[in-house]
């Protein structure tokens, strides 16, 4: 029973959607169009003229070892960020769900990290793990481990993953917690009587009932790790060492604004655009199927 508002004229509805259309046009359609257009050209070193190259930029990119390795780091990075932000979130939500008293306080405290801006979170983690003054790296040193994410690519990757996932745990926790609360108690009790102990119940009953939420979070987190982790990477590693943490989005920035290769940068953002589109289509297809189960 959807309530629909009917307008008599055409002007008022147009006027009402105008701000949204305007914002989308200015900040999305126009730049996207520009990117597609620009990806077909190579500008000269001084930015004074453009030479049409067709799909040349794309051909170059797919032949480029660094670009392929950036795909690889992006895949690793997004898988790790998604796992590192979803599994602890689910675990915390399960614990908070079992609490009778004080779950409100835990909930509030667990949500806080989400309010920290990515760049700030990045700086925070950078200081903690700073190779000279960082608290954590000092303790690791005491334990005999020589932490140096400035030189070690895997350590750098680990650090940006941790910093990116940290704030995200809060967001995922909220969704998992709400979904857990929606699982009917009697279904859990029925499973307990059927002989399933806690973890068995969790894996055979609770987790399947959470699947719409889990899938939604999976897609949202993958998109997040693809596109919204720029601030964290920029503040902590700036894509280094040796491009170990240069994910696709960072490479768009590095090639376009630092390397001034606007054609290649535009081509990369077009590829990213296609990836977002693909992910969005996947998400909608799946959610439409899952929601009515």
């Amino acid at each position: 029973m959807e309530k629909r508002v009917t307008f008599r004229g055409v002007m008022l509805p147009l006027l009402l959607i105008a701000p949204q259309v305007f914002i989308s046009a200015v900040f999305f359609f126009y730049p996207a169009g520009q990117a597609i257009w620009q990806s077909l050209f190579i500008p000269d070193p001084f930015g004074l003229s453009n030479q049409f190259v067709g799909t040349g930029n794309f051909e170059f990119l797919f032949g480029d070892r660094h670009y392929r390795s950036s795909f690889y780091s992006t895949a690793i990075f997004s898988i790790l960020v998604t796992l590192a932000s979803m599994i602890p979130a689910l675990f915390l939500a399960v614990l908070a769900d079992r609490l009778i008293k004080g779950s409100g306080a835990y909930r509030t405290l667990l949500i806080w990290p989400y309010a920290v801006a990515p760049a700030v979170a990045g700086v925070l983690w950078m200081f903690m793990f700073n190779t000279r003054v960082g608290v954590v790296s000092w303790y690791l040193g005491q334990l005999g481990y020589d932490w140096n994410h400035v030189l070690n690519g895997s350590e750098a990757m680990g650090l940006v993953v941790a910093a990116s996932a940290w704030g995200r745990i809060s967001y995922n926790f909220l969704f998992f917690f709400a979904a857990l609360q929606a699982v009917p108690r009697s279904v859990i009790e029925a499973a307990a009587i059927d002989g399933a102990r806690f973890w068995r119940r969790f894996f055979t009953i609770v987790l399947p009932l959470l699947s719409p939420t889990t899938f939604f979070l999976l897609v949202v987190n993958v998109v997040y790790s693809f596109f919204e982790t720029f601030g964290v990477i920029h503040t902590i590693t700036a894509g280094g060492p040796q491009q170990a943490t240069t994910i696709l989005v960072y490479k768009v920035y590095a090639d376009g604004f630092v390397g001034q290769d606007l054609g290649s940068s535009a081509a990369q953002s077009v590829i990213l655009l296609l990836i977002v589109g693909l992910l969005t289509v996947l998400q909608f297809k799946f959610i439409e199927k899952r929601v009515h189960y």
């Binding site: 009917p184 279904v187 009790e189 029925a190 307990a192 009587i193 002989g195 009932l209 699947s211 189960y293």
Partner: peptide
């Protein structure tokens, strides 16, 4: 524990496992 009491319970709202078929529901235990 409930599972060690050799009992079975029928709930007011039936408490069936929504993601399982009828056969899986009955055979779960």
């Amino acid at each position: 524990e409930p599972m060690d009491r050799d009992i079975a319970m029928v709930f007011q709202n039936y408490a069936l496992y929504p993601h399982m078929s009828v056969a899986q529901n009955m055979g779960y235990g």
